[in-house]
Simulated assay, not measured.
Amino acid sequence: MRNLSVSEWISLDGVFDAETMPQWFMPYDSVSRQEWIRDGILSADAILFGRKTYEMLAPYWSRMKNNEMGISDKLNSVSKYVVSTTLKQADWANTTIIGKDVIKSITQLKQQPGGTIQIEGSAELVGHLQAAGLVDEYQLLVHPVIMGGGKRFFGKGMFRVG
């Protein structure tokens, strides 16, 4: 069975929203951070997105011709899946829309031959997959700042102890 790996960039208090990235993500750039991000993407055999993350990334990466560090070629050639009940068309090469029976479809995807399926961002989707027991691992790139507010990756009730 394929591994379903969640890759997230977050602040110490779990903030991950794109709107506040200049405050928590940008100031902590380093070669090791770039390599960690690159290695995660290059090791994935497929990428899974929620609609919002897909719509944020597809316009940028689908036009990217500079293959610095190998990321754009990988993202443009790898099999991609976007979960959406409203998206009618996915123009990014090698993208399949999963519009219904999401849990069943992703369970079947995990059962197909292949390597790691990596989820980028997509907290709402991750919450549903986690509740269904489909997430195998979390890879968190934690930035050394407490935001105090903003959209948090780990929503209420996402993880329960006991």
Rank of each mutant, 00 (worst) to 15 (best):
M1N: 08
R2I: 05
N3Q: 14
L4S: 07
S7P: 05
E8V: 15
W9C: 13
W9F: 15
I10M: 10
I10H: 05
L12M: 12
G14S: 07
G14T: 07
F16A: 10
F16N: 06
D17I: 04
A18E: 15
T20Y: 15
T20V: 09
M21L: 14
P22A: 03
P22E: 09
Q23G: 06
Q23P: 04
W24Y: 14
W24V: 00
F25G: 04
M26Q: 10
R33P: 02
Q34K: 15
E35Q: 15
E35L: 12
R38Q: 13
D39F: 12
G40L: 06
L42I: 08
S43R: 14
A44R: 00
D45S: 11
D45R: 04
A46C: 09
L48P: 04
F49D: 00
F49A: 04
R51L: 01
R51T: 02
K52D: 01
K52I: 03
T53L: 00
Y54V: 01
E55D: 08
M56K: 07
M56D: 10
L57V: 10
P59Q: 05
W61I: 01
W61N: 01
S62M: 12
S62W: 04
S62D: 10
R63Y: 04
R63K: 05
R63I: 00
M64K: 10
E68T: 11
E68N: 07
E68W: 09
M69V: 06
G70Q: 00
I71Y: 00
D73Q: 09
D73W: 03
K74M: 06
N76I: 00
N76G: 09
N76V: 01
S77P: 06
V78P: 00
V78R: 04
S79G: 10
K80F: 00
V82E: 00
V83G: 07
S84D: 02
S84E: 01
T85C: 12
T86S: 09
T86V: 06
K88Q: 12
K88L: 08
Q89A: 08
Q89K: 13
W92M: 02
T95S: 05
G99P: 06
V102D: 05
I103Y: 03
I103L: 10
I106N: 05
I106L: 11
I106A: 09
L109F: 13
Q111R: 05
Q111N: 13
Q112R: 12
Q112L: 14
P113E: 14
G114M: 04
T116N: 13
Q118P: 04
I119E: 01
I119F: 00
E120R: 00
E120P: 06
G121Q: 02
G121V: 02
G121M: 00
S122N: 07
S122G: 06
A123W: 05
L125E: 03
G127L: 06
H128Q: 15
H128L: 14
Q130E: 15
Q130P: 05
A131H: 09
A131I: 10
A132N: 05
L134K: 11
L134T: 14
D136Y: 06
Y138R: 07
L140G: 13
L140W: 11
V142D: 15
V142R: 03
V145T: 08
I146N: 09
I146H: 05
I146V: 15
M147I: 03
G149Y: 11
G149P: 02
K151A: 07
K151G: 12
K151Q: 08
R152W: 07
R152N: 03
R152T: 12
F153G: 02
G155S: 15
K156E: 08
K156F: 08
G157V: 06
M158I: 03
R160L: 11
R160S: 11
V161N: 14
V161H: 15
